[in-house]
Computed example of a mutant assay.
Amino acid sequence: MQAAAEGVQGWAATKDGQKALETSDPDDLTGYFQDGLNSDHFDKLRNLVARLNPVKAISLGVMGNADLFVGVQGAFGYADDLHNFDETSAIFGGGGLIEGVDAAFEGSIAVGIWLEPTADIGGFYIGAEVDIDEGMGVTALACASHDDNDKFRDEEGVNLDFAKVVMIGFHVGLGDGVAADESYFFAGHITKYPSFQTGTAKHQVNLTTMHCGKQDARDNAQDSVTLVWRVDGGTQQYGYPIWNDIQMRGTPNSDIYQVPLGTVIKFDESFEIDLYVNGHMVKTHRWHDHDFKGPGDVQTKTFSNDDCSYDFGARLQF
């Protein structure tokens, strides 16, 4: 823990560290995190965790910060394999449902201790806060695969035997954000649209769990789903997820053929969303401020054509 804290504090005080705290551009941030993880500030941490057999990779990024990335309420960062450092790497990003984690989790530079190699980083992860020494000003989030959710979290708490990563957040100057309970990560490349909105607006919604009623993919393949949205009649487009697309798994009748979205949209009067499945636009739907009865109300839309059917809602936050 001390080695991670020293690395973060030392790097955050550098010129690049300060730039990373101020930027909201994913491309720039990826470069800052990569350079930071490869700097001598993290030599001590790398040498320590390399002695631990279960640890396969480490990462540097942010977690739980809605001011920096609205819609990236889980985590964002760069990971390197410990035993093939700076040669085998992954980029990850994710959104989360905005409930369940202590407010101290918000706005942190995060060091990730991965129990799987970077080649396996991806898919849908379930996250839960874990207790560590709060006197050090840190918070930790453990994540397991969706398939292990029942074994990872139960009435007695979190079973770290099923964790794929533990992210340790250090509060070094980031603003408060929106806490995340469930996080999911995707390895790959950044989409052509930004996935976050800057500035303020009269209203804010988060997107709820997306369900598939009818899949489009042939021969039992997986549907690949992406969202593009615009607000208040403007032409600026935003994309979700940040990397690649949402890879659906299973069949429409199985529990895993649904994905908690969690991404946040800010608007004054209205917003509209295009749903793409396997690269083809299925439908566009628009939500208006007067559609919502008040904070907490969910308005659900169905996106369907002759080939597929998906539905998800927007929950008004304010």
Rank of each mutant, 00 (worst) to 15 (best):
S254K: 12
G239P: 06
P252Q: 02
C212A: 15
Y193H: 14
H285S: 09
G279K: 08
V228I: 08
A221H: 10
R286A: 03
Q258W: 05
Q215D: 11
T191M: 12
F196A: 09
W243P: 05
D181Y: 05
Y193R: 12
G199P: 10
E269I: 00
K266N: 11
I242L: 15
H280V: 11
V264W: 07
D216L: 09
A187S: 13
V282K: 07
D291A: 03
L261C: 10
Y257I: 01
Q236Y: 00
G262Q: 08
K266L: 02
N206I: 06
R249E: 08
D291S: 01
N206W: 15
P252C: 08
G294E: 00
A201S: 15
F267I: 07
K214G: 04
V298Y: 03
F292A: 09
V298C: 10
V298Q: 12
T235W: 01
I273C: 13
E269R: 07
V205G: 05
I256R: 15
H211T: 00
L227T: 12
K301D: 00
T284F: 04
T191R: 15
V225S: 05
F271Q: 05
T251I: 07
A201R: 14
S254D: 08
K293F: 00
D181A: 09
G296D: 02
G250H: 07
T191A: 14
E269P: 01
T208S: 15
R249K: 13
D274Y: 10
A201T: 11
E269A: 07
N278A: 03
N244S: 14
T235V: 06
S270V: 00
R230K: 06
V277P: 10
V231M: 06
K192T: 08
H211E: 03
K283T: 02
Q258N: 14
G213A: 09
V205H: 06
N253H: 09
M210R: 09
H288G: 00
S224Y: 03
H211P: 00
A180E: 10
Q222W: 01
R218S: 04
A187N: 15
W229M: 02
V259R: 12
G233C: 02
W229P: 03
N253T: 10
Q258G: 10
D245F: 14
P295C: 04
T208F: 04
K192Y: 04
H288S: 01
T191W: 07
P194N: 10
D268P: 05
S224V: 01
D223M: 12
D181G: 15
H211R: 11
V264C: 06
A187D: 12
G250V: 04
M210T: 04
Q204I: 03
I242H: 15
G296I: 02
H203T: 01
V277I: 13
P295Q: 10
Y238T: 14
D289E: 05
H189E: 09
F186H: 05
Y184T: 14
T200Y: 08
G188L: 15
N220Q: 10
A179L: 04
D255F: 12
A180R: 06
D232I: 02
Y240K: 12
D297P: 03
F185T: 11
T198Q: 05
D223F: 09
G279P: 02
T235L: 08
W243S: 15
A180L: 06
A217L: 05
F271T: 06
N220L: 08
D223T: 11
Y240T: 04
I190T: 15
S195R: 03
T208Q: 08
G233D: 01
F267K: 09
T208V: 08
V264Y: 13
F185P: 01
G296P: 03
F185E: 08
